[in-house]
């Protein structure tokens, strides 16, 4: 029996919204420790790695590890019927062939319950090696979202270079070139506005803006976003969910012609 109760159901809704355009049919893996998802997009260029700890839930029971095969666009439709302040309950028997979702509104006392048929999804798990990244940048997630959106006007590829000068985002296209340089900023009193750049050695990589734009759907989950890069490796873009978990995106670089 798997049963989990999340007082702030909206967190789960935001997680679904942050990945449902990138990965469609996913397994939500339930263990005694956490709910997790690891899934690549259809082109195998990006990997989503989500984790939500059992400590995020008011009640969490998982007798046996389960994989809940779900179509995220369908799950997203169901979450449209959840109120902002609703409590969310997930429930599945061990012979999981369906998932129960319940939305409880304490104020009005209404309870909505939905049943989703589960799918059998064959998904090979990728081994993501632990890497000591050469550059790690923490910045306001809204700033990253704006940079990605603005540079999409200029072209389809973003060059991200981390040097002692700072962090530069560049895009070149038919109409010209755009550069946005961010410098370390730990002066502002609001922690969330800080930009911290830890650079062990300079790194410069190219990425498809289309994917970076998908990743910024996770912006509502976290005021800050963490970018980690090493020469010749996929970038990791991490949206921490308070201390309860994270949504991480890995993206393979584009090679220079």
């Amino acid at each position: 029996m798997f049963e989990a109760r999340l007082a702030n159901g909206n967190i789960f809704k935001m997680i679904v919204e942050s990945i449902r355009e990138l990965v469609v049919d996913v397994n939500i893996d339930c263990s005694t420790e956490e709910l997790s998802i690891q899934c690549m997009d259809s082109a195998h260029v990006a990997l989503v790695s989500m984790s939500l700890s059992q400590s995020a839930f008011d009640h969490f029971r998982c007798d046996r590890s389960l994989s809940l095969g779900l179509n995220l666009p369908n799950v997203s439709k169901i979450f449209k019927m959840m109120g902002r302040d609703d409590t969310m309950v997930l429930k599945a028997e061990d012979s999981a062939d369906k998932l129960m979702l319940m939305f409880e509104n304490d104020k009005s006392g209404t309870i909505a319950d939905f049943e989703l048929k589960l799918m059998a999804i064959e998904a090979e798990q990728l081994g993501v090696p632990d890497t000591a990244y050469k550059c790690s940048i923490s910045m306001p997630s809204s700033e990253f979202q704006r940079i990605v959106r603005d540079l999409q006007v200029m072209g389809d590829t973003c060059k991200i270079s981390c040097t002692k000068e700072g962090l530069k985002f560049s895009a070149t296209g038919q109409i010209g070139t755009g550069n946005i340089l961010m410098r370390q900023n730990v002066a502002s009193e609001k922690e969330e506005d800080h930009v911290t750049i830890d650079m062990e050695e300079p790194v410069e990589l190219n990425f498809a803006l289309r994917y970076l734009n998908f990743f910024t759907k996770a912006t509502p989950l976290s005021p800050t976003v963490i970018l980690k890069m090493s020469p010749g490796l996929p970038i990791v873009i991490e949206y921490p969910i308070e201390q309860l978990g994270h949504v991480k995106y890995y993206l393979a670089p584009k090679m220079e012609e």
Binding site: V45, L126, P129, L233, P234, Y250, M255, E256
Partner: peptide
């Protein structure tokens, strides 16, 4: 512009 690699170039199957 440029050639898009896939993640299999970097991550194996566990």
């Amino acid at each position: 512009s440029g050639l898009q690699a896939t993640l299999h170039k970097y991550f194996g199957y566990s």
